[in-house]
Design a binder for these strands. Structure first.
Length: 401
DNA sequence: AAGATTTTAAACAGCG
DNA sequence: ACGCTGTTTAAAATCT
């Protein structure tokens, strides 16, 4: 069956992350990738040789150690630090060191709670042109999730696999923006973007809820964050959504640094940029066929960034996946999609999702914010000097081999 | 327990 | 020839 993308089980407890400061929807789709290549990150300076226990930490831990610490530590001061190096452990302002990674920093090396599809999505979204070559996607992942630096190279295969099979991603002919280089650029299919966002958002909540229960070994510094979560617990889900989003927005390191960072990440706040369904069942999926029915169509018109993407280069999207179960862009009927797609788990139980969006703008707004904040978290580290890292990662990569 | 989802592995072809 | 990229298939692991 189809493989695909999504979050793995344990990863399901994810936390959203999201993209960083750089991209913006600024419509950059037109400008393809050159910028991008530079955007490829590289692995941080971790000790790749050390493969400290990764898998051990649960997603929750990962979240605790990373996101939450950010909240607690991420005071204004911390946030102001230029290019905060947000590592999974919550260490900021400095590159992840092997030492951190090896000891207390196991979390750093723990498997990210995001499925490959989300990782890819985040990588792509954080790029200025909203499209990246696989190589840069690898780089982004390595940069943000050092875990992969020490993980067996199979993950790259998984990334490619996801790109190929997951309908959420489209291949863009590189010629559009890059003169040289192998391969194509990959972008997020506007139609499925909401799914991905939804998935990010969705993943967040479970975690947030889980925080309602005292963590196994809550770091002292954790209390504040936890408190916030606890507060959220008293809210109904939709409220949590909004509350969490706000909390994240206000406390996350990169918190709307846009002011100073023109390259702000996905501007999820833009109405048109994201069409998120609040339906918990809606998830992202390869196919997201069902989801499609509910929200995607509208998304095509909804996300400016998306559309810009289309304009930019996803033109090839249509051609893409001709042979696979994949995508098939817009011409595909929903039925086709559903039968073809493997899966993003985005299900849209309620047929009236779209209507809901239209009728409840505020809610929509909240959802967008939530998604945005989540994405933001994931992109906390994107302020790094990506180009440098790219080179490094490459080296490391080779080294590993 | 069954089905769905996600990950991982591997084979293969095309391209630079 | 080699390495990277992209596509497919298959199977295992997990979750619902």
């Amino acid at each position: 069956m189809g493989p695909i993308i999504g979050m793995s089980p344990d990863k399901k407890a994810e936390s959203p992350g999201v993209m960083g400061e750089r991209t913006g929807l600024r419509g950059v789709c037109g400008t393809l990738p050159e910028a991008e290549s530079a955007a490829s990150p590289l692995a941080t300076s971790l000790d790749r040789s050390s493969s400290s226990g990764d898998e051990e930490l649960t997603n929750l831990n990962w979240l605790h150690e990373n996101l939450l610490q950010n909240f607690t530590l991420g005071g204004p001061e911390a946030q102001s630090s230029p290019g905060p190096l947000f590592d999974i452990e919550g260490n900021r302002g400095r590159p992840v060191s092997s030492s951190t990674a090896s000891h207390g920093g196991e979390s750093m090396k723990s498997k990210p709670p995001f499925s490959f599809s989300l990782l890819i999505y985040m990588a792509i979204e954080q790029s200025p042109s909203k499209s990246l070559p696989v190589k840069d996607i690898y780089g982004w992942i390595l940069e943000h999730f050092p875990y992969f630096s020490s993980a067996p190279t199979g993950w790259k295969n998984s990334v490619r696999h996801n790109l190929s099979l997951n309908k959420c991603f489209r291949k863009v002919e590189r010629s559009l923006g890059k003169v040289n280089g192998k391969g194509s650029l990959w972008c997020v299919d506007p139609e499925y973007r909401p799914n991905l966002i939804q998935a990010l958002k969705k993943q967040h909540f479970p975690t947030a809820h889980s925080f309602c229960t005292p963590p196994a070994s809550p770091p002292s510094a954790f209390s504040p964050a936890r408190h916030l979560f606890l507060q959220d617990c008293s809210l109904k889900e939709s409220d949590i959504d909004a509350a969490t989003a706000m909390m994240l927005l206000n406390s996350a390191p990169g918190h709307h640094a846009d002011t100073c960072d023109p390259d702000s990440p996905i501007d999820l706040s833009r109405r048109d940029s994201v069409l998120v369904s609040s339906d918990p069942k809606q998830d992202h999926n390869y196919s997201s066929s069902s989801f499609q029915r509910c929200s995607s169509r509208s998304s095509s018109s909804s996300s400016s960034s998306l559309s810009s993407l289309d304009e930019a280069g996803c033109e090839s999207g249509q051609a893409r996946r001709a042979g696979s179960e994949g995508f098939h862009s817009d011409e595909d009927s929903d039925e086709e999609r559903s039968s073809r797609l493997p899966s993003l788990t985005v299900k849209c139980p309620l047929p009236g999702k779209r209507a809901r969006h239209e009728s409840k703008p505020e809610l929509d707004e909240e959802l967008k914010e939530a998604a945005g904040s989540l994405l933001h978290l994931a992109g906390i580290r994107s302020g790094l000097d990506l180009s440098k890292q790219t080179a490094k990662s490459k080296k490391l990569e080779k080294h590993r081999k």
